[in-house]
Lab assay of single mutants.
Amino acid sequence: MTEYKLVVVGAGGVGKSALTIQLIQNHFVDEYDPTIEDSYRKQVVIDGETCLLDILDTAGQEEYSAMRDQYMRTGEGFLCVFAINNTKSFEDIHHYREQIKRVKDSEDVPMVLVGNKCDLPSRTVDTKQAQDLARSYGIPFIETSAKTRQGVDDAFYTLVREIRKHKEKMSKDGKKKKKKSKTKCVIM
């Protein structure tokens, strides 16, 4: 069974824990209790493949930012979460993405942009803004509501699919490099 290491990042209060708990335990946590770091595991079937999701729910508070490099190193894919009623959390996505790329030393890291709290009427981040940002990053965008469960499975499952595509691409690139290195030079 394939294991996928997913990391949920975003500013404090955007609903990272609520999304994760909704996926794992099928219930909505409405009281806000700032996370330092929590880890969850769940076995699911995605596109006919049974897999184990190892999900790291991270601290959004700035005082825990020193811990970010460590979990970013171990993560295979990242859910970059903002709240649709919090423009600052949307603007912060850029910083999370840049930090992930720096730590992973790669421009090509599996990510999904997630606009959470889409059940709320007080939207300050337009869907088109988020779609445009995701398009500019070359990553999928999904709106979710941890409260109603809308888009929750889709967000995590899409990230797994992005990781699969990335692994497939990397193995193809690896095979191309191996083929090239088999060419021999004969000096007579």
Rank of each mutant, 00 (worst) to 15 (best):
L19Q: 07
E49F: 04
I21C: 15
E63S: 10
V29Y: 05
T20W: 07
F28L: 11
D47P: 05
Y4W: 05
E3K: 13
L19D: 03
I24Q: 13
D38H: 12
G10C: 01
Q61K: 05
I55W: 07
Y4Q: 08
C51N: 09
E63K: 05
I21T: 15
Y40W: 06
F28D: 10
Y40F: 10
L19W: 02
I46Y: 05
K16G: 07
V8K: 00
Q25T: 03
S39G: 10
T20K: 13
E62F: 04
D38G: 13
Q61A: 12
V7F: 06
L56Q: 15
S39P: 08
Y32R: 12
K16M: 02
P34A: 11
I36M: 09
T58M: 05
S39V: 08
V44N: 03
D30M: 03
S17W: 02
V14T: 07
L6K: 00
R41S: 10
I55A: 10
V29Q: 12
D30S: 08
G13V: 04
L23K: 14
L53H: 09
K16H: 00
S39A: 07
S17D: 12
E62C: 11
A59S: 14
Q43I: 04
Y4K: 05
Q25L: 04
T20D: 11
V44Y: 03
G15W: 00
D47V: 01
T20I: 04
Y64C: 13
L23E: 14
H27P: 05
D33H: 06
T20N: 14
L53P: 02
Q61R: 08
Y40V: 11
A18T: 08
I55Y: 07
K42W: 02
L52P: 13
L19R: 00
L52H: 15
A59P: 12
Q61L: 07
Y32F: 12
Q61C: 08
D33L: 09
H27I: 07
V29C: 11
V9Q: 00
F28G: 11
A18H: 05
E31P: 10
G48P: 05
Q22A: 03
I24D: 15
Q43M: 03
C51G: 07
Q43E: 12
V7N: 04
E3A: 15
V9A: 03
P34D: 06
K16E: 02
E63A: 03
D33W: 04
E49W: 01
H27C: 13
G13H: 03
Q61T: 14
L6D: 00
V44P: 08
K5Y: 00
A11P: 09
E3P: 15
V8E: 00
L23G: 15
D54Q: 14
A11H: 04
E63L: 01
I36H: 12
L56G: 14
T2Y: 02
L19M: 10
Q43N: 09
G13A: 07
S17A: 02
Y32D: 15
D54N: 09
D38T: 05
G10H: 00
F28E: 11
V45D: 09
D54G: 03
D47K: 02
V9D: 02
D57H: 12
T35M: 05
Q25Y: 01
L56R: 15
H27W: 07
E31A: 09
Y32T: 12
H27D: 09
L56S: 14
A11D: 05
L53A: 05
P34Q: 14
D30W: 06
A59Q: 14
G48E: 08
E31K: 11
V29N: 13
T58E: 10
E3R: 12
V14R: 00
T20V: 08
G48N: 08
S39K: 09
G10S: 00
Y40E: 13
C51Y: 14
G12D: 08
T2V: 06
D30E: 09
D38I: 02
L6Q: 00
V9L: 15
L6P: 02
F28S: 11
Q61I: 08
E3S: 13
A11K: 01
Y32G: 13
N26Q: 05
Q61W: 05
N26A: 14
V8L: 07
I36W: 06
Y4I: 13
V9W: 03
A11W: 02
D47R: 02
T2G: 13
G48S: 05
L53W: 07
L56H: 15
D47C: 01
I46N: 07
G60M: 06
E3H: 11
D54P: 04
L53K: 01
D33C: 10
D47M: 01
K5A: 01
H27V: 09
D33P: 10
D47T: 02
P34F: 08
L56C: 15
Q61P: 12
Y32P: 09
V8W: 02
V7P: 00
S39E: 11
S17N: 13
L19A: 14
K5R: 11
V9T: 00
E31H: 07
S39I: 05
S39Q: 04
T50A: 09
V8Y: 01
D38N: 10
D57P: 03
E62L: 05
G12V: 04
L53E: 05
D47W: 01
K16N: 01
A18M: 09
V7A: 06
A59W: 05
D33T: 09
E37C: 08
Q43D: 12
Q25A: 06
D57Q: 06
C51A: 04
Y4D: 10
A18L: 04
L6E: 00
R41G: 10
G60D: 13
D38P: 12
Y64R: 12
T35E: 07
N26Y: 06
G10V: 00
I24E: 15
I24H: 13
Y64N: 15
K16V: 03
E3D: 08
K5T: 01
G15K: 00
Q25S: 07
D33F: 07
T2H: 14
Y4C: 09
R41Y: 06
P34Y: 03
D57I: 15
T2K: 14
P34L: 06
Q25R: 08
G48F: 01
V44I: 06
S17L: 03
K16Q: 01
D30P: 13
P34G: 05
E37T: 05
G12I: 03
E37P: 05
V7G: 02
T58Q: 08
G48L: 01
T50M: 04
C51R: 05
S39Y: 05
L23V: 07
E62M: 12
G12M: 03
N26W: 02
L56D: 14
T50C: 08
F28Y: 09
S39W: 03
T2R: 13
V9I: 09
G60P: 14
E37N: 15
K42P: 08
G15E: 01
V45N: 03
E63I: 01
A18C: 08
E49Q: 09
A59E: 10
V29P: 07
E62H: 10
D57C: 13
G15P: 00
E49T: 09
N26E: 05
